[in-house]
C-alpha cells in the first residue's frame, strides 16, 4: 500500500505541479508588473530625496530587496535540496535547481547596485565590508552549485550531489558571515563607516516594502516557470507530457 502511494506520488505529482504552476505563473507575473510599477513610481518619483545622500539613496529600493532575495533563495534552495535528497521527492529537486539561477541573479544585483551606491556614498565602488564580502561569497556558492549540477550528466546524481553541496553551503553561510564580520571589525583601518539606511520616512519604508514584494513575486513567477521547463525535460518520456503537448497546440 505504502509502495503504491509512493508510486502514485512519483508519477502524478510532476503532472499536477506542471498544471498548477502553469495556472499560477500568469498571476504572479501580473502581480510582479503591478508591484514594480507602483514601487518604481513611488521610489523614483514620489519619495523625496534623502537629506544626506540626495537621490543616490534611491538605489536602496532595489539593493535591499535583491540582497534579501539572494540570501533567502539560497536557504530555500538548500531546504528544497535537502527534502529532495532525504525523501527522494523529485519536485523538490527540480525546485532547488530552478531556484539557483534566479538566486544568483539576485545576489549579483545586490552586489552591482551596492557598488554603484557605494561610489557616491563612500567614494569607492567596492569596500570589503562584511555584508558585501559575504554576498560575494554567496554568489560563488550559487555558481558552484550550478556548475556542479551542470558538470554531472546523470540527472539524479546531479541533483543528489548538488543537494549535498547546497546543504554544506547553507551550514557555512552563517560561519562565513560571522567570520567576515569579525575580520571586518578587526581591520577597521579606513575611515569608511558603513551605516544602515538613514532613519526611514514612512514613504520610503512603504516603497521598500512594495519593492521587496515585487522581487518576491518576480522570483516566484520565474522559478515556477523554470521549474515547469525542468519538469518537462525530466519527464519527457511520461505520458502526461504528451497529453499536455497536444492540449497546448
Amino acid at each position: 500500500m505504502s509502495e503504491r502511494s509512493i508510486q502514485w506520488f512519483r508519477f502524478t505529482a510532476p503532472a499536477n505541479f506542471y498544471d498548477l504552476a502553469g495556472r499560477l505563473v500568469p498571476w504572479f507575473a501580473a502581480l510582479t508588473v503591478a508591484l514594480f510599477a507602483a514601487g518604481l513610481y513611488l521610489g523614483l518619483v514620489v519619495a523625496p530625496p534623502d537629506y544626506q545622500q540626495g537621490d543616490s539613496y534611491r538605489i536602496m529600493y532595489i539593493h535591499v530587496p535583491t540582497a534579501w532575495m539572494g540570501m533567502f533563495l539560497y536557504v530555500l534552495m538548500a531546504i528544497y535540496a535537502a527534502i529532495g535528497l532525504i525523501w527522494r521527492i523529485k519536485m523538490a529537486e527540480i525546485m532547488a535547481k530552478a531556484i539557483a539561477p534566479t538566486g544568483a541573479l539576485m545576489t549579483f544585483f545586490a552586489l552591482w547596485t551596492g557598488a554603484l551606491w557605494g561610489r557616491p556614498t563612500w567614494g569607492v565602488f567596492w569596500v570589503w565590508d562584511a555584508r558585501l564580502t559575504s554576498m560575494l561569497i554567496l554568489l560563488f556558492l550559487y555558481l558552484g552549485y550550478m556548475a556542479l549540477h551542470a558538470a554531472i550528466d546523470d540527472r539524479q546524481r546531479a541533483s543528489n550531489a548538488s543537494a549535498v553541496l547546497a546543504m554544506v553551503g547553507v551550514v557555512n553561510v552563517p560561519i562565513i558571515y560571522f567570520s567576515v564580520q569579525w575580520w571586518n571589525t578587526l581591520h577597521q583601518g579606513a575611515s569608511i563607516t558603513v551605516t544602515d539606511a538613514p532613519t526611514m520616512a514612512t514613504i520610503m519604508f512603504v516603497t521598500l516594502l512594495i519593492m521587496t514584494l515585487a522581487a518576491w513575486m518576480y522570483s516566484i513567477a520565474v522559478v515556477l516557470a523554470r521549474a515547469r521547463i525542468e519538469v518537462l525535460e525530466r519527464e519527457r518520456k511520461a505520458s502526461w507530457v504528451k497529453e499536455r503537448l497536444e492540449a497546448e497546440t
Binding site: 518604481l40 523614483l44 518619483v45 530625496p49 540626495g54 537621490d55 543616490s56 534611491r58 538605489i59 532595489i62 539593493h63 535583491t66 539561477p101 534566479t102 541573479l105 549579483f108 544585483f109 552591482w112 547596485t113 554603484l116 551606491w117 561610489r119 557616491p120 518576480y218 520565474v222 516557470a225 523554470r226 521547463i229
Partner: peptide, 29 residues
C-alpha cells in the same frame, strides 16, 4: 528627473542593468 540630482549614472546604472538582466532572464526562459 533623469539627472537624479547629479547621481544619474549610479541610479540609472543600477535600475537599467537590473531591468535589462531581468528581461534577459525572462526571454531566455
Amino acid at each position: 528627473f533623469l539627472a537624479m540630482g547629479g547621481y544619474a549614472p549610479y541610479v540609472w546604472g543600477s535600475y537599467l542593468v537590473m531591468a535589462g538582466l531581468l528581461v534577459v532572464e525572462m526571454v531566455q526562459l
